[in-house]
Design a protein around this nucleic acid. Structure first.
Length: 491
RNA sequence: CGGGGCGUGGCGCAGUUGGCUAGCGUACUUGCAUGGGGUGCAAGGGGUCGCGAGUUCGAGUCUCGCCGCUCCGACCA
């Protein structure tokens, strides 16, 4: 249907890339690895932001903003943190340019060298904990529940639109607590919010659990995550919530007096989701005809397309469309009436289909006569003719139905692509031929995980929270194991 | 960093063993018709062929150097 557009089966990576560009979500910029997020793509991100921001605020968090730059010395305070991020930091060394002596442009002014280099944040734990030292004196100052919407830079070697870009947008929460227990609870509350958001808004089922030590965040005691499965059988980490213990409090000397008048280090969490979610949204639902967006995150939920020959017909249709638009908007539904005369109806049908608009209404002379409207849903591509009566409720129900149907479809896909494997041979075969999530026993050592990764490129995506205890043998070493973990190849 | 591919109107591409006025699709502008699944016809605007040097009567095409982009691997949300 779509012109010059590869199918998922032909070339999944190409399909994804072309989809992002042709659906006008984003494009590559003049800066290697950095994308320009275009209005339609940014609108999706804004909808995600709005939903998440409300969830954070409803659970007592407030937004704040910390600097883009971090003094280099901050990074060496927490040993494993610096180790994790050192290889991908952008560094600011000078603060001035001057005209080149040979008139060829501008050059860095060597006289304007910074005494201490500044790092463009790859994440903000260090600058935030350095700040928290001054904010926290007593248990009365706790808990401190802060979130920041920001951009960060990680100098990745290979990038892909939305999934991995050098600069990306995200939210990072940084909380401080009086007890270990309370910090762990916070980590779990956030994990719950992320999972809810993924399932109810993005219509993507996720597995909740822990990361293995190899995959743990640099500086964390425990990393919780939600893990989603994409249509090509690869896993996507969709959000992480870290219990940081007292690591950052110790590194930045953040102490408080507890109720017993004893000085103690503060307990910390950090958590984040990024514009990567937009990539996940695309990969989880879209098809060979283009984007498929869940109604709750679609920038345009309903598009109305007039079909007419004469100006008098258009006037009557426009009048009808305006009535529908008003009725739908009263119910909080975003509607676009595409009255452009420069494109034919067929062209518009394809355009909105490609852009994933959940519901399309078409109104022509025939409908005016019969008091009907043609309704097409994007998820199944089905068309039906509705009587105009009570149209706003019919469409509202349809949107709910589409949201639910997309979730069920994604859930069924995940279930069909989750395989229990018990031997090494089975593990390798399944990974090679089917992909997906592999439930397998693991002996719990980093060494084994590392070897499996080197041999198969599969990693432990998540140690599920709700896994039933089950005695078994590690698929690689045969050593005893108490529960299955989830392996997959990942983005 | 290792290995492939590519730089020609906005975008996607062709351009043969060097040859004459650099072409095609699409997009754009204008007009007429058309309009229930990417509409047709006609006219029109738009290009230092990535940059630099060389070979030659003549270079988009050959040689050398440089730059950029992109894909595949190790790294990562």
């Amino acid at each position: 249907m779509a012109k010059d557009f590869p199918t998922r089966a032909e070339n999944y990576a190409q399909w994804y890339n072309d989809l992002v560009i042709k659906a006008d979500l984003a494009e590559n910029s003049a800066v290697r690895g950095c994308m320009v997020i275009k209005p339609y793509g940014y609108a999706i991100w804004e909808k995600m932001q709005a939903a998440l921001d409300k969830m954070f605020k409803d659970t007592g968090h407030m937004n704040a903003y910390f600097p883009l730059f971090i003094p280099k010395s901050f990074f060496s305070r927490e040993a494993s943190h610096v180790e994790g991020f050192a290889k991908e930091c952008a560094v600011v060394t000078h603060y001035r340019l001057k005209s080149a002596p040979d008139g060829s442009g501008v050059v860095v002014d060597e006289d304007a060298k910074l005494d201490e280099e500044l790092i463009i944040r790859p994440t903000s734990e260090t600058i935030i904990w350095d700040t928290y030292r001054n904010w926290i004196q007593s248990y009365r100052d706790l808990p401190l529940l802060i979130n920041q919407w920001a951009n960060v830079v990680r100098w990745e070697m290979r990038t892909r639109l939305f999934l991995r870009t050098t600069e990306f947008l995200w939210q990072e929460g940084h909380t401080a607590h009086a007890t270990s227990q309370e910090a762990i609870e916070e980590t779990e509350i956030i994990l719950g919010i992320y999972a809810d958001f993924a399932e109810k808004w993005m219509a993507i089922p996720v597995l909740k659990g822990f990361k293995s030590p190899n995959e743990r965040f640099a500086g964390a005691v425990e990393t919780y995550c939600i893990e989603a499965l994409m249509q090509d059988g690869k896993a996507l980490q969709a959000g992480t919530s870290h219990f940081l213990g007292q690591n950052f409090a110790k590194a930045f000397d953040v102490k408080f007096l507890n109720r017993n008048n004893e000085l103690d280090y503060v307990w910390a969490t950090s958590w984040g989701v990024s514009t990567r979610l937009v990539g996940g949204l695309i990969m989880a639902h879209s098809d060979d005809n283009g984007l498929v967006l869940p109604p709750k995150l679609a920038p345009i939920q309903v598009v109305i397309i007039p079909i007419y020959k004469k100006p008098e017909q258009f006037a009557a249709i426009a009048d009808k469309a305006a009535q529908i638009k008003t009725a739908l908007e009263k119910k909080g539904i975003s509607v676009k009436f595409d009255d452009r005369d420069s494109f034919t109806p067929g062209w518009k049908f394809n355009e909105y289909e490609f852009k994933g608009v959940p519901v399309r209404l078409a109104i022509g002379p025939r409908d005016l006569e019969n008091d009907t409207v043609e309704v097409a849903r994007r998820d199944t591509l089905e068309k039906a003719v509705y009587q105009m009566t009570d149209i706003e409720n019919k469409v509202a129900n349809l949107l709910d139905n589409i949201q639910e149907n997309m979730y069920q479809k994604a859930l069924a896909f995940r279930e069909n692509n989750t395989h229990q494997v018990d031997t090494w041979e089975e593990f390798c075969n399944t990974l090679e031929n089917k992909g997906g999530f592999l439930l397998a026993h693991w002996d719990g050592t980093s060494e084994t995980e590392q070897i499996i990764k080197e041999e198969t490129k599969a990693t432990i995506r998540v140690i599920p929270l709700d896994a039933k205890p089950e005695a078994g043998k590690c698929i690689y070493t045969g050593h005893p194991s108490k529960q299955r973990v989830v392996f997959a190849r990942a983005y």
